[in-house]
Design a binder for these strands. Structure first.
Length: 470
RNA sequence: GGCGGGGUAGCCAAGUGGUAAGGCACGGCUCUGCAAAAGCUGUAUACGUCGGUUCGAUUCCGACCCUCGCCUCCA
């Protein structure tokens, strides 16, 4: 399986550190839990989910860790505004994130530690950096990483330090630092922190943002990991700093493969509060879309490494495309017998299906090209309909199609459309069935209208009425 | 200023040194009590501009234009 590696700027095969080549360690920078996540956040996590599922598709055991950042300026401020202890405040948004992830059918990583549950590991790592003279304690009692001690600094983002420093914005309040690029590992407690703070060898304070990911990934996955992912904005400085900290501490290459997901745009523009285009998952649901429709839009809207332009028209397109898939599945299911899954040799009895599965592998192995796979899948759908209409699709072939879908959906994660029919609607449907039986079409039409007003569509098929959400 | 992504039909989006998947939209047909839905099918001067390399470039090279992002808050 080949994946673009930001570090080398090349598509490269994934070669796990595991001698058996089976286990892949994956660390992903999780959200700061001070608010509901927006669809941009979830674009990243849907892409990571695609990676995770694809790795498993190719037979890897994925050991995936994602931390929740539950202490920083924003969480502290939010807790203060709500007059809640930090822990209680962040618990609300941790829970919300997990719910939204479920809405999108994002698999929860094997471990999802909160940063503040691992303060000792961070302190130990900072101490190690101090011992190695890669860090220093400033006059005010904060601890900083000394960039000058790490010659490779800038390797991920291909920055040269000179240019970086001369061109960069430099905040004036950080006069305690030796070098402008130095970043904080441990922040000395200040009054604005209120109740928040932990004791350390350098006094009361809290960890800097970057150190948590290094400490947590080392604690859970060891000093070296196969893949480290996150949103593209984290490349610099966050991931650059993680590399510096981690490698300065261990002397080992920290990450084999850096995986960065490009940002989502809304109507071609960056999301921002002032434009009023920051949508949460809940906002999308409130507009009447389902989580799987949003997931499909996020998955098919663009390759993970490209900007994805979110539009409501795009949501409509996703919804319609998904209906096409669902319709196909209904037809296939009606013909497919219950049989055990075939092996690949038996699958050759359905050349179209066998070809599709090979194409699926190739597409995924090629830097997660899900759109290529979807394109081929829709072609398979057309072929199926044609065969079905011609009456040439055998039950065995239908079975194979069903199996192929299951394999594909293990990656897509779309599952089934869940339609809960309200009792009121069901009653109208029953009445209408009666009317139709009696060939009372005017009453039938009247009932159809009533149902439509309530937000549902009825279609009449050879097998009777079928209900669709409006 | 430094670095990096993009510009493919009405919209979205794959891809390739030999004349370009797929989805949505649109037209036609089938089905239907009527619809709707669905299916089939069709349409389109679609590869930002100008040069270069080549038998041949959308695909390689150069320049330019437009656009988006990052340059220590940020998925």
């Amino acid at each position: 399986m080949q994946l673009f590696n930001t570090l080398t700027r090349a598509v490269e095969p994934i070669i796990p550190l595991d001698p058996a080549g089976k286990r892949v360690s994956l660390y992903v920078c999780g959200p700061t839990i001070y608010n509901y996540g927006h669809i941009g956040n979830f674009r990243t996590y849907v892409a990571v989910d695609l990676l995770r599922r694809s790795l498993r598709h190719f037979g890897y055991n994925v050991d995936h860790v994602m931390q929740f950042t539950d202490v920083d300026d924003k969480t502290i401020r939010g807790a203060r505004e709500k007059n809640l202890p930090l822990k209680e405040f962040t618990a609300i948004y941790r829970q919300a994130f997990l719910e939204d992830a479920k809405t999108l059918n994002i698999e929860i990583p094997e471990r999802t530690p909160n940063a503040t549950d691992h303060i000792p590991a961070m302190i130990a790592l900072i101490q190690k950096l101090l011992d190695k003279k890669s860090a220093y304690v400033s006059d005010d009692g904060s601890v900083y990483f000394r960039i000058a001690s790490f010659p490779d600094y800038g390797c991920l983002c291909h920055l040269d330090l000179e240019g970086l420093i001369s061109g960069a914005r430099v905040s004036q309040d950080e006069y305690e630092k030796e070098g402008v690029g130095d970043f904080v590992l441990w922040k000395k407690w200040v009054a604005a922190d209120g109740e928040v703070g932990w004791d350390s060898p350098w006094g009361k304070g809290r960890p800097g943002w970057h150190i948590e990911c290094s400490a947590l990934s080392m604690e859970h996955l060891g000093p070296q990991i196969d893949i480290h992912g996150g949103g593209t904005d984290l490349r610099f400085p966050h991931h650059e700093n993680e590399i510096a900290q981690s490698e300065a501490a261990t002397g080992l290459p920290f990450v084999g493969h850096w995986f960065h997901v490009e940002h989502l745009l809304v109507d071609g523009q960056k999301m921002s509060k002032s434009l009023g285009n920051m949508y949460t998952v809940r906002d999308v649901l409130d507009r009447g879309y389902t989580g799987r429709e949003l997931r499909y839009a996020l998955l098919s809207g663009a390759n993970y490494a490209k900007n994805l332009n979110f539009t409501w028209q795009g949501m409509e397109d996703a919804k319609t495309a998904l209906q096409r898939i669902d319709e196909w599945r209904k037809r296939v299911r009606a013909v497919a017998p219950a049989l055990p899954p075939p092996d690949s040799e038996q699958m050759e009895a359905s050349p179209g299906v066998a070809t599709f599965l090979r194409e699926l592998d190739l597409a995924l192995a090629n830097d997660l090209n899900i759109n290529d796979a979807l394109g081929r899948f829709f072609s398979l759908i057309r072929e199926t309909h044609k065969a079905l209409d011609a009456g040439t699709l055998t039950p065995l072939q239908a079975h194979h199609l069903k199996v192929a879908w299951n394999k594909f959906d293990a990656i897509l994660g779309l599952g089934d459309a869940v339609v809960a029919v309200p009792a009121e609607i069901q009653a109208l449907l029953d009445q209408r069935a009666e009317a139709r039986k009696a060939k009372n079409f005017s009453l039938s039409d009247e009932l159809r209208k009533k149902i439509e007003v309530l937000g549902w569509k009825v279609k009449d098929t050879a097998k009777g009425q079928e209900l669709l959400p409006g």
